[in-house]
Write a protein that binds this DNA or RNA. Structure first.
Lengths: 116, 116
DNA sequence: TAAAGATATATCATATAATGATATAGAAAG
DNA sequence: CTTTCTATATCATTATATGATATATCTTTA
């Protein structure tokens, strides 16, 4: 069984996040690499070591599933129902983290200002 | 093409992010631990190994600075100007990542669906 | 005042995660 | 034919996080 603290805690690492997002449509590994580059306007480039390592882990956790095998050449994956659930949770986690950041920067983090 | 260390790429890890946010006000290590627990409604707990390791790293990069030393007991840190800059950038990065996630989930990532 | 629990910092060994380098090979383009 | 792109895969190393442990002070309370 695959170890992984992030997933055990229902968190996605950034790389897992990008990969899971890409797999909202069926894609093979190399396509994921291109999709991520595309989604991030070339900001994020994921190499083969990260890509196939993470694909294997997500697959073992059944967050993604192999949907097609083109001979030996292409392996097409897609996100699973539980993968979608986790992805949604992680988007919300990321929103909460960013909101928290904005609040603290604006100095609004302390207590409730009931003003009355 | 971001590779290598998070800070070299102007990215903050989650732990660094929480710690830098906490240091928008002067705080010593143990206070940071409590602040993070507080900010996250007890969701995030950072242990001493992570805390002091990261504090040392942020300090070496001058993203935070030692502002006071209470005898040998307390070391009070605060975020620096460059730390604040990086923090702002990272909040925006996190917002962009979450927005991207929402778009893809809603199936709006490809082209513009003008509803016609 | 003794003990307990909270505060406070620090490091080691290990676990987890990411990635550059490398290997292999088919397909497309020139 | 040879270069480039597509495509998957693993190894060795680096990067990051953390549980366990150590040490010491301060605070509360029995």
């Amino acid at each position: 069984m695959p170890r992984g603290k992030a997933l055990d805690d229902n968190r996605l690492t950034d790389s897992m996040y990008y990969i899971l997002l890409s797999l909202m449509e069926p894609l093979h590994g190399y396509g994921i690499k291109q999709k991520i580059s595309d989604l991030s306007n070339g900001e994020i480039e994921i190499g083969p070591a990260s890509l196939y390592t993470i694909l294997k882990k997500l697959s073992a956790r059944e967050l993604i599933a192999l949907v097609e095998e083109d001979g030996e050449r292409r392996k097409t994956y897609q996100i699973s129902a539980s993968g979608r659930d986790l992805l949604k949770r992680d988007i919300n986690r990321r929103i909460r983290m960013a909101e928290m950041g904005k609040k603290v920067l604006l100095g609004l983090q302390g207590g409730n200002d009931d003003g009355k």
